[in-house]
Write a protein that binds this DNA or RNA. Structure first.
Ligand SMILES: [Zn+2]
Length: 506
DNA sequence: CGAGTTTGACCTGCGC
DNA sequence: GCGCAGGTCAAACTCG
């Protein structure tokens, strides 16, 4: 609890200036410095953590070398170091040759410089912080626009068609509070759709969240988020047999998942959330057990994830997320969630549901994505969007995902420069264009479709965004490997690249 | 002592 | 109806 609070605080101040004084026992939280544990227990989706620390030590950060901010930081730090070293030399000389008054003079000047250094860092941190806040607001506004536009269009085209699955519904990176703000159009739309069917639906029409059937889990989410409800134990689902049609249309919505495949020796990926393991199972056809986690960042958060190693390549970690958080997410987690949501949007934005299950026009919509395939309801009752981060730009993707999932082959290290500051000088399809695509309030469906169809590099841009998050395996900071302590090592220095992720992916 | 993990039991859906 | 597999529960256990 206390630890969590500390993480949270640290996270919240991630944009602030790192405490300059080296006396702070920060090593407890980020021991990335001296002792690197041989065993990586958790893969870090947010390599930025190290940046702050590296900044502390004046080390260069390759990814950010081109960034004005980071270069500022770097020079900042370096200046400090130079001053320190030179000043010490000066003082040594002064000890021998100059009067002590001059020494104190130099020291005062040095202190002044340090003070200024500190102040600049603070300023930079604050700027970054507000920048990120603005970014978040922009993102929400954009998504709201896109959502509204999409539902509107679908309404016009389909009339009384079954509910459209939207990304924020099936995996929303935002807290449900934020979702509520943006949701009305979607939920209203949904309600209208359902209301259009015969009156027997009235009972279940009211709201999707009101599938809170009294049962084992009902109490957990009572009073908490309702719109964020995205997964429901099948037992609860089963209780509602009053309307089969409705149930069918609900299934894909509830069960939609986003799966991330990434190479990692670590048993966990750090995605900014805290997870508690609640089960482990040996899945058939895979010698590696599958672990089940649920989000513990807030009481009753319905988000779960499954972690499993790939049977073919055990260095590949498959993390499958399911559900919506009902609490504020750290930007770190939001970045990942946003990115996955973006991929999900690509797949799902054109999807419709039928009584046979979900049918995804993937082939038609994603001609350039050989791994986007039609959902086979018999194979999996829910759509799975797979972000494959294991493949290099030229790698031949192996036949991993079953034909029931859509895969976006994403290179992890394809564009390390994007990791840094893709928005400034991106190669090929830039994150900027990706961002513009997402920002365009026209039709997200068409935008995304067009982008993918016309430029296969779109997925690379997405990959770049994610790879920014994934980055290098995290240095484990001690025992606690159960909860993802990515937050604990969040950067104390600006996180522009991370913010870019959020931006470009949505 | 509390929080998190482990692990066997249990529940449910689905195919035969 | 039966068996299998995925998913979840919860008591026991571990750890800090
Ligand atoms: Zn959560």
């Amino acid at each position: 609890m206390e630890k969590q609070l500390r993480r949270e605080l640290r996270f919240l101040h991630s944009g602030d200036c790192p405490t300059q004084d080296s006396g702070e026992p920060d090593g407890a939280l980020d021991d990335s410095g001296d002792h690197v544990k041989p065993l990586i227990k958790e893969m870090d989706f947010f390599p930025n953590h190290n940046q702050s620390h590296d900044c502390h030590q004046g080390r260069k950060i390759d990814n950010n070398n081109n960034s004005p901010l980071s270069s500022l930081l770097d020079s900042d730090v370096n200046i400090g170091l130079n001053l320190l070293s030179s000043s010490s030399g000066v003082s040594r000389i002064a000890n021998e040759e100059k009067p002590k008054a001059e020494i104190s003079h130099v020291k005062i000047a040095l202190e002044r410089l340090n003070e200024e250094n500190r102040r600049l860092r603070c300023t930079l941190g604050q700027i970054t912080k507000s920048y990120k806040e603005l970014q978040g607001q922009l993102f929400m506004a954009v998504q709201k626009l896109a959502l509204g536009n999409k539902t509107e269009k679908k309404d016009a085209v389909n009339g009384t068609s079954s509910p459209i699955m939207s990304v924020p519904q099936f995996m929303d990176p935002r807290p449900s509070a934020a979702l509520d703000v943006n949701e009305p159009s979607a939920s209203n739309d949904r309600t209208q759709d359902l209301s259009a069917s015969p009156g027997k639906n009235m009972e279940v029409v009211s709201k999707e969240g009101e599938h809170q059937i009294p049962g084992k889990h009902a109490s957990v989410e009572d009073g908490s988020d309702k719109t964020s409800q995205s997964w429901r134990p099948t037992k609860c689902l089963k209780l509602d047999h009053s309307n089969k049609e409705e149930q069918v249309s609900e299934v894909p919505f509830r069960k939609a998942r986003v799966s991330i495949r990434a190479r990692s020796e670590a048993p966990l990926i750090s995605d900014g959330c805290q997870w508690r393991k609640y089960g482990q199972k040996l899945a058939k056809g895979n010698p590696c057990p599958r672990a089940y986690y649920r989000c513990t960042m807030a009481v009753g958060c319905p988000v779960r994830k499954q972690v499993q190693r790939c049977a073919e390549d055990k260095s590949i970690l498959i993390t499958t997320y399911e559900g919506n958080h009902n609490h504020p997410l750290p930007p770190a987690a939001t970045a990942l969630a946003n990115t996955t949501s973006a991929a999900a949007a690509m797949l799902l934005s054109g999807s419709t549901t039928s009584k046979d299950g979900l049918s995804l026009p993937s082939f038609g919509y994603f001609p350039s994505l050989p791994y986007a395939s039609t959902m086979a309801p018999s194979a999996a009752p829910f759509p799975i969007v797979t972000l494959d981060l294991t493949q290099g730009p030229n790698a031949v993707p192996f036949l991993w995902p079953p034909p029931s999932a859509a895969t976006f082959p994403l290179p992890v290290h394809g564009y390390p420069q994007i990791l840094g500051h893709s928005m400034l000088a991106p190669p090929k399809l830039s994150a900027v264009s990706a961002m513009q695509l997402w920002q365009r309030p026209v039709s997200m469906v068409e935008t995304v479709t067009a982008a993918i169809a016309s430029d296969p590099n779109f997925s690379r841009a997405l990959a770049a965004a994610i790879s920014k998050i994934i980055g290098a395996p995290k240095r484990n900071n001690g025992g606690n490997n159960n909860s993802s302590n990515g937050v604990a090592t969040l950067p104390g220095s600006p996180q522009l690249p991370q913010s870019c992720t959020t931006f470009s992916a949505n």
